[in-house]
């Protein structure tokens, strides 16, 4: 899915469904991507995770690993896995408009 319309914008995605350019991201796009990942409604806790990932990406230049989201982002592991069921690793990065996480932890 290289280029497609989402939330009123034309956005480029890579072969695995991650946004190519994080600057294209908007909260409205996040809501649409979340629905595609099976999350109908983004709550404040979801936003806390998404916003941490985006700001961490701004400062470090790479999407945070799950452990970093729990440690530096202050979201307990249990909560993170409950917020993004069936595997938060790729879901979080995808909804936050970032690339595929490169870290293993």
């Amino acid at each position: 899915m290289p280029v497609r319309e989402i939330a009123g914008k034309t956005v480029e995605f890579d072969g695995e469904g991650f946004m190519v350019n994080p600057d294209d991201w908007t909260p409205e796009i996040a809501e649409e991507l979340a629905k595609e990942e099976g999350i109908d409604q983004l709550t404040d806790l979801h936003w806390k995770v998404i916003e941490f990932c985006r700001s961490d990406f701004q400062t470090r230049g790479e999407p945070p690993t799950l452990r970093r989201i729990t440690k530096a982002g202050g979201v307990p592991t249990k909560e993170l896995f409950a917020l993004f069921p069936k595997g938060p690793a790729k879901k979080v990065a995808r909804i936050a408009g970032l690339g595929k996480p490169q870290g293993c932890v």
């Binding site: 799950l66 069921p85 293993c104």
Partner: peptide, 10 residues
């Protein structure tokens, strides 16, 4: 390490 990666991928 692999277990954590697996959980992260659902």
């Amino acid at each position: 390490i692999m277990g954590w990666a697996a959980l992260g991928n659902g």
